[in-house]
Amino acid sequence: MPFLQHFCEMLYQSSFGTMLRESNNAFSVIESVHVLSITLLVGTIAVLDLRMLGLILRSVSVSSLARSVLPLSWSGFAVSVTSGFLLFWAEAAKMYVNPSFRTKLVLLVLAGFNALVFHATIYRRAQEWEQQHISPWRARVTAIASLMLWGGVIIAGRAIAYF
């Protein structure tokens, strides 16, 4: 058995995983927290992306919006990863073979990579372009990629339950 699959089986059969899976309320409550924290994460990132596309908040500079919004996005990220890991723990053996779960993880990695590239390159020179109503094309490309990837994370995440 591959190592990852073995690890998932172990989590699934652990007493904590079993307790979560068989609980009446704990799983649903964690799921609700997960949905709300994703709203916080993706909603705030989308606001920044739409600003870079010049669709909203043109009077606010990109870096001042980023400074306001990114702590919220990170809080949402921390809560959604924690709650997501607990949900995974309860269903790990099923998640290992779930195509939607795998897709979601790949999209998450891509979304993270996209954000990393943005911060390491274009955003470093933000003071040169942040006052512009519409950001340079490379910033717009990352914004569109971000909207698509995070949207994909939500879609794939919802689809997990249907497999």
Binding site: G43, T44, I45, A46, V47, S64, S68, W150, I154
Partner: peptide, 28 residues
């Protein structure tokens, strides 16, 4: 899924406006 994508955008815009009204962000 469409409902959830809408939720993310609604949640984001409500939050930004209300946090501004609270004086937490975008004070300029």
């Amino acid at each position: 899924m469409v409902h959830l994508l809408g939720l993310a955008l609604l949640g984001g815009s409500v939050l930004i406006v209300d946090l501004r009204l609270l004086g937490v962000i975008l004070k300029g």
